[in-house]
Amino acid sequence: MTPLLEVVGITKHFGGLYALAGLDLHVDEGEIVSVIGPNGAGKSTLFNVVTGLYEPDEGEVRFQAESIVGFRPNQITKLGVARTFQNVHLFPNMTVLENAMVGQHCRTRSGVFGAIFQTPSTRREEQLIRERAKAALGFFGPRLTGYRQEQPAFVLSYANRRRLEMARALATDPKLILLDEPTAGMNPRETLELRDHIVRMRDELGLTVLVIEHDMRVVKGVSDRVIACDYGRKIAEGTYEEVATDPQVIEAYLGTKAAG
């Protein structure tokens, strides 16, 4: 079976700094794969290359066996790859609902003339966008529903902003969702809740998940497979237990913890 996402030997450097130095990885359909590694290991650069924000210097990115190198970010989103950002990036002055509705943009097609003349198909589509956006917001329970949907995004609490960002990604109807440190800055309870959400994304929505995570409880709890990176290369791969006991990983990533 061809993997859903396949990254072959990608290299990306900024000046003399190699953020990615020949990284290989693959994600099969229905998997939850965690990427771990110390800060500066190239994890976020990997996401940026996969989603088309950066173009790799070398190597190949294939989604559903099709090369997506050189595609614009919006084309990649349309193919079914959605993402969140390490530092939450919402549309702060748009309402919560509008944020999620933007996610539906790539699945819909009505344009200027439909909007001006309010054609029946435009109205139907607008209704559909609204419903789907609400469904995506509803994934997180009551937190992003009700009166909150009409609030501008900037009034949300930090945890809710993170949830909204994920809901917006879900609203693009993706096949693969890339989560960049989804639990960063969350308190322990929110972190555990989010762990369940990640599992539910696969079990209920049928998504494939690629997640960058630092919180080892989350990594342990969700991952089918863990990939450890350092200096833009893969240094270990396998189940959580295999990777966590790998000497190279301990040295690179957990080394500080062992030393402390």
């Binding site: 989603t51 088309g52 924000l53 614009r72 970010p73 919006n74 989103t77 349309k78 959605a82 993402r83 950002f85 990036h89 919402l90 549309f91 702060p92 002055n93 748009m94 509008e98 933007v102 996610g103 943009h105 790539c106 699945r107 917006r168 990604a169 693009t172």
Partner: peptide
């Protein structure tokens, strides 16, 4: 609106 708020993110959202 999304573009005005954050062009890169709008791009990434399709």
């Amino acid at each position: 609106n999304a573009m005005r708020e954050d062009e890169q993110v709008a791009d990434a959202m399709g």
